[in-house]
Design a protein around this nucleic acid. Structure first.
Lengths: 356, 356
DNA sequence: TGCGCGCCTGTGAACGTTAACACGTAGACG
DNA sequence: CGTCTACGTGTTAACGTTCACAGGCGCGCA
């Protein structure tokens, strides 16, 4: 009697308990079970209790595939990831996931190896087939945001962690310009004549915005704007840029586009015999977990990746539930403010180098 | 005619194209479309082409929810994660995800805040409701593996990255004992009388296994086994342990349970005026992305987290497709070998400290 | 010629859920 | 006392796919 179908090959699939079983045990119809499950108001309290009991005693689990089939929503969100192995993206992913769980959503990930339009659209496609209700792209480059704009309009997308201010999709990002300004101004305030910059890759908006913020701050202070070298986001790149900087005696302060670059710069300066912060001050960006234990502990701009993730989820949810009829539409761009964390790698300029 | 249902409220859902539409356009039955989609052999070449054309011109996407409902498999794998913000777990996650994609699977994540049995089982439950075909747990502690054993037997689970050799579930892990031996022996070979150890948390198998490997190696070499201090996995903990080690003049070599601890130890030694490697040699574990740019560049034990992820996926797939009838069952435990990477933080012992 | 056996295709019935509608009862209100 | 509405519940029909089975057609072989 438990198996309804004799399955000709003899290997019976382990018939799982469904609504009808619960209904039979509770002495109601399957629809009532459904109502209990979906917290429909019109169910007598006593009936509800009986159904709940039956569910418990049968260890019933609702089949979400069936539910998705008919409701066309899966309570699942998709995440498009890139380089999720790095601290920043990994933290955002985690922030999104944990906020999603609290909101009752499951999270599926689809990473891409490169950020070109084709791969991003492919990822969107994979997620669509799994009928996700919305998508968050951890999208450091603008190509992603543009690709997102080509997604089917029925699918809400949000980009997090790259450039702000794109009209292609709602975005959540750090105020990179502000961060750069905090770092640069901090060094100027310490009396440095100017601040050099060890930049990240030129085609990443995060890098570009930090350069712009740094440049503007110097300009506003009437300081010379030194030329910029570009590199990748890692310590090796910082090491190379650091060598060049160490050779130039006029360099007394360096703002690095992230903490890993700063680590490389610190090592290059150390090898060149320059003391930090006595000879040269160094400031990073990100506040990675252990940057407080570099030699010396790194002054840096803290960004809260987890918060970024949570905010992007909140924004996505707002856009998903927003109906044209509602009064005020959710914002299209959210900017999160970073904070300066002063530690030991930045200090006052030597008297002979102070700007006039 | 496109909308079949006039939807009384006037808001017509955007009827999406389904198999029947494709079938009609191609002049076949929906079942034939299904066959084409599933690469069934018995379809005439010309028919297949016609169906494919129709699918393209209608921009057809198969509805996976419906497919899951009837086949009871979702082509989705579940991942239970913990602290996925750290480099190791993040890399494993990425390794799993990218291998899963190549194998045609989607990946859903369910992280837990703590590793107790209840939360892990809750995560399994969430994944089960979304009818995942299998589960990989990034499971550094044994409680996870035990919890996994309580999952419904129809659900294949694999644990990765913690202790090897648990009978509760198949596991994939690094040979921590071997790694510890490589590090310790390397230092002994450099002439150090003995090797001190800055350990991780005592209740993590990874930490315990490294201690054991280190202890065994010292014992085999007839060296004194110094007492162990425990800490957490971060640089702060290494910094604290490093202070104590710096005070003890007999310390000439330190093996750290991971690179972050090593970073803290390096800073503590630096502040105490000890030179590395001239006065004290330091070896880490993990080979994090930038450990080659610490001051000095860190000698460490490299573990390939991505490989760990890929192997765990492969093992899961083997266990999932394995039928009792098949000749040899897949292995229950896979051990991946780490490798020693010698850089500048380890060097020969000072003559007066060489062991006799 | 007749029979069997491959190939290719179509028809109907699942899968487990929610949506739409219908029905019966009880209280409110004219 | 009739009608209207709200509530609680059951019945039936989707949702879009795959599975099981039934044919038709062509070919080889007795």
């Amino acid at each position: 009697m438990p198996t309804r179908k004799p399955t000709p090959d003899g290997v019976a699939r382990p018939r799982l308990t469904v609504m009808r079983d619960v209904a039979k045990l509770a002495g109601v119809s399957h629809q009532t079970v459904s109502r209990v499950l979906n917290n429909h108001p019109n169910v007598r309290e006593e009936t509800r209790a009986r159904v709940l009991d039956a569910m418990r005693s049968l260890n019933y689990r609702r089949n979400l595939a069936a539910r998705t089939l008919v409701t066309r929503q899966s309570d699942t969100l998709g995440i498009i990831g890139f380089e999720t192995t790095l601290f920043g993206p990994a933290s955002m992913l985690h922030g999104i996931e944990s906020a999603a769980r609290d909101a009752g959503y499951m999270v599926s990930i689809a990473s891409v190896r490169d950020l070109d339009r084709r791969q991003v659209l492919e990822a969107v496609d994979r997620l669509t087939q799994h009928s996700v209700d919305g998508v968050i792209a951890i999208a450091p480059k603008q190509s992603v945001t543009h690709a997102l704009a080509q997604a089917p309009p029925s699918l809400q997308c949000v980009a997090v962690g790259g450039a702000g201010e794109s009209d292609a999709a709602p975005t959540v990002s750090i105020d990179n310009a502000l961060g750069a300004r905090l770092a640069t101004q901090h060094l100027l305030d310490l009396g440095h004549a100017t601040v050099h910059h060890a930049a990240g890759p030129p085609d990443w908006p995060e890098s570009a915005e930090r350069i712009e913020g740094w440049r503007r701050t110097l300009y506003a202070a009437g300081a010379v704007v030194p030329p910029v070298e570009h590199g990748w986001w890692d310590a090796e790149s910082g090491y190379e840029q650091g060598h060049a900087l160490a050779r130039d005696p006029s360099v007394t302060a360096v703002f690095c586009s992230n903490d890993r670059i700063a680590l490389g710069v610190l090592r290059a300066l150390h090898e060149a015999g320059k003391r930090v912060p006595d000879d040269v001050s160094v400031v990073g960006f990100d506040d990675m977990p252990d940057s407080g234990f570099f030699v010396p502990p790194l002054t840096t701009v803290h960004q809260d990746f987890g918060e970024l993730g949570r905010r992007s989820l909140a924004l996505l949810l707002e856009h998903m539930t927003h109906t044209p009829a509602a009064e005020l539409p959710p914002p299209n761009h959210v900017l999160v403010s970073p904070q300066l964390v002063v530690r030991a790698s930045s200090g006052p300029a030597r008297p002979d180098c102070t700007r006039t």
